[in-house]
Amino acid sequence: MVLVVEASPVFGAESQGTSSPQSRYGLRCASCHGASGKGDGWRAKLSWLKMPNFSDSAYMQTRSDDDFLIAIKQGRKSVMPAYGLELPEREIKDLVALIRSFDKAPAPPKPAGTAR
């Protein structure tokens, strides 16, 4: 008996470094966080979990880039997988920049020495 929980193109073009941040987000994040980051992905709709709305300026101002870097690298509790061993640091930073782009308000000034 074979049980397939989810098929993921982890070892496809993405593993060769040819994918964009948008395609990585689409493969790894959009099913929960939604295509435009509103927290309305199909998995969020099927569960009791409330996903953050990355297009909500008030929410985004409460989160630093480091918060997002840590969440992507280490995951969140048992609901968000950790990608720190699968994605290089540069690709994670690109995902953070993409997540920031969902919020159309200008970003608040960053203190010196914080992650970009």
Rank of each mutant, 00 (worst) to 15 (best):
D103P: 01
Q74R: 10
E14A: 15
S20N: 00
S31A: 14
I99P: 02
S31V: 15
S78T: 07
L69E: 02
P52I: 10
G39K: 12
S36G: 06
I92F: 08
P108Q: 11
A35C: 05
G41R: 14
T18W: 03
G113P: 01
I92M: 06
P21W: 00
S64E: 07
S20W: 03
E89P: 01
G12S: 07
I99Y: 04
A44E: 08
D56N: 12
A7W: 08
G26H: 05
S55Y: 01
G26I: 04
M1P: 11
E86H: 14
S101G: 04
A7I: 15
S55E: 06
R43V: 13
T62D: 00
Q22T: 02
V79F: 12
D65A: 15
A97C: 05
M51I: 11
A30W: 07
Q61P: 02
D67W: 09
D67L: 08
P108F: 03
P88N: 14
L85A: 12
R63G: 09
S47P: 06
L49S: 10
L46N: 13
M80H: 04
L46I: 11
P108I: 15
Y59G: 03
S19R: 01
T18K: 00
V5R: 12
D94F: 09
P111H: 10
L69Y: 11
D66P: 10
N53L: 13
T114V: 15
S8R: 15
V79Y: 14
S8N: 10
L69P: 04
K104M: 00
G17I: 03
E89H: 11
P88T: 08
A112S: 13
F102T: 02
R100N: 01
P109D: 09
E6W: 06
E89W: 08
G26M: 05
R63S: 13
